[in-house]
Amino acid sequence: MPVSLIRRIASPKKALTTAAVAAATAGIALTSAPAQAATHASGPDAKAIAHQMIPDAAQFNAFSRIVEHESGWNPHATNASSGAYGLVQALPASKMSSAGADWKTNPKTQIKWGLDYMNSRYGSPAKAWSFWQSHGWY
């Protein structure tokens, strides 16, 4: 599959689905990358970490909805056209380094940065979700 086709797809989930369908059509099996260290969680683990970090149900639900739309809870999600990265699709991605040096691989660091961003820019995850609903981005 040409790289340019994947770059035109804005959603990481769509890109992955497109790549998987193309690979299956070509008879190629896709394999996952080698497992990271235990501190580098997967999507379901990231959601559990976020739930621990955001005890308020309404705020967690708002944060979760944003992350679901932005990255599908994939801490390695990358938007090829913009360079946005991670659970909360930070742009530029390197901004998340302010929350920790392990921002590229650690969902907890990405969640911390995302919460700080939502609280400072919008006042709360719920207010960020409200903005997201009316604009399709935050």
Rank of each mutant, 00 (worst) to 15 (best):
I9F: 02
H40F: 15
D102E: 11
A90T: 00
A29H: 11
Q89N: 03
A77R: 02
K104V: 06
T18M: 10
H135V: 09
S124M: 00
Y117E: 06
L115Q: 06
A38T: 15
S82L: 13
K13E: 11
A101V: 04
G114L: 07
L5P: 05
H40W: 13
Y122A: 07
I28K: 13
L115M: 11
A58I: 04
N119R: 10
V3L: 15
K104L: 15
S98F: 01
Q133K: 14
E70S: 08
S11R: 13
M118S: 01
S120T: 13
G86N: 04
W73T: 08
F60H: 04
G136K: 15
Y122Q: 02
S134N: 05
T18Q: 01
L115Y: 02
G72Q: 05
Q133V: 09
H76T: 07
W103R: 05
A77D: 04
D56C: 00
S11Y: 08
A33E: 13
A99K: 02
A128G: 05
D102M: 03
S94P: 02
A19P: 00
K14I: 06
V88S: 07
T17F: 09
F131N: 09
A29M: 10
K47T: 04
A48L: 12
A41I: 05
A23I: 09
A80Y: 14
K104G: 02
D45M: 10
A41Q: 14
A29D: 11
P75C: 12
Y85C: 01
K108Y: 01
P92L: 08
K104R: 15
L115I: 13
P92E: 03
G72T: 09
G43H: 09
A24C: 07
A15Q: 13
V88C: 09
S81K: 15
V88Q: 02
A126Y: 02
Q36W: 09
A37K: 14
N79I: 06
Q52D: 15
V3F: 14
S124T: 00
A35E: 12
V88I: 14
S130R: 00
F131Y: 14
S81W: 01
Q36S: 14
A33L: 14
P55C: 10
Y138K: 07
W103M: 04
A37S: 14
K112D: 03
A29E: 12
K112C: 00
P125C: 04
S124R: 00
